[in-house]
Amino acid sequence: MKLWDHTWMQVEKYLEHDDRVVVPLGSTEQHAYLSVGTDAILCEKGAVEAARSEGVPVLPVLPFGLTPLFTAFPGTVSLRMATYVALLTDVLDALYAQGFRRIVLLSGHGGNAPAAQLGQEWGAAHADAEVMFHGWFTDPRVWSVATGLAEAGHASWVENFADVRIDGVGIPAGAKPLVPPAALRTASPEHARELLGDGSGGGAYQLEQHYADKVWATAVTLLREQLSSGWNARK
């Protein structure tokens, strides 16, 4: 359930019987022929779908993350590490002060991985709370399903859903060779743009929708399981 669909009084009532909450972590960055908001849009939608049956509130997605590699592409907005850490710390502190004790940092963008360490450090300083970092599509168990179906890279078929397609923008047919991740790891933003060209990391731009839908269903099921039984014993 979306936190914004409730009054503060309803949230207070929820906290009388549950202390779980999901914080979607998105990004605003180039996604080839898809929306620059792809990571944020899909992460929040997936969180809401997974959390619905558990009755767990989902905060509005944080639309900006850590994406320095793509800053040579217009429309990409990357935060400094210090800004990102401070922002997430403030969010965690605010949730804790209100009574939330089991907090999921759900990342829809691989570059937001440092949030995992922050969550671990913050949790160590709050003995009665737990922060779970979970990758939406980047969790290895989800990505294994995706790559078992077809080659997949950034902004490929695996992220191609109606919610992030742009009216009037045609998506190419066919596939693009995968751009070597090793080359991107050491690339400057300008070199990354040269390597990626249109922004896609490789793989088919689009496949029959049931391929992407299978990956989506896997991600939703896994997150729902994490919300239900993925917590450590209360400290």
Score class of each variant (00 low, 15 high):
V58K: 05
V58I: 04
L59F: 00
V61F: 03
V61W: 03
V61Q: 09
P63Y: 03
P63V: 02
P63L: 03
P63G: 04
F64N: 06
F64C: 09
G65A: 05
L66I: 15
T67D: 06
P68Q: 08
T71C: 13
A72T: 00
A72L: 01
F73R: 01
F73M: 02
P74V: 02
G75L: 01
G75F: 00
G75D: 00
T76D: 00
V77S: 00
S78N: 06
S78T: 15
L79R: 13
R80N: 08
R80H: 08
M81Q: 13
M81T: 14
A82T: 14
A82N: 15
T83S: 15
T83F: 04
A86T: 14
A86N: 13
L87G: 07
L88V: 08
L88E: 04
T89R: 14
T89L: 02
D90K: 06
V91P: 14
V91C: 12
V91K: 11
L92M: 00
L92F: 00
A94E: 15
A94W: 12
Y96P: 03
Y96E: 15
A97Q: 15
Q98S: 13
F100W: 15
R101H: 07
R101M: 01
R102N: 12
I103V: 14
I103N: 08
I103T: 03
I103G: 06
L106W: 05
L106I: 02
G108H: 10
G108T: 06
G108R: 11
G108P: 09
H109A: 00
H109V: 01
H109G: 02
G111K: 08
G111Y: 06
G111C: 04
G111F: 05
N112D: 02
A113G: 07
P114R: 11
P114M: 11
A115V: 09
A116G: 11
A116N: 06
L118P: 05
G119F: 07
G119Q: 03
Q120C: 08
G123M: 03
A124F: 11
A124I: 08
A125E: 11
A125I: 07
H126A: 07
A127E: 12
A127T: 12
A127M: 06
A127G: 08
D128K: 13
A129Y: 02
A129F: 03
A129D: 03
E130S: 09
E130Q: 15
E130F: 08
E130V: 12
V131A: 11
V131P: 05
V131R: 05
M132V: 10
F133S: 12
F133D: 05
F133Y: 15
G135N: 04
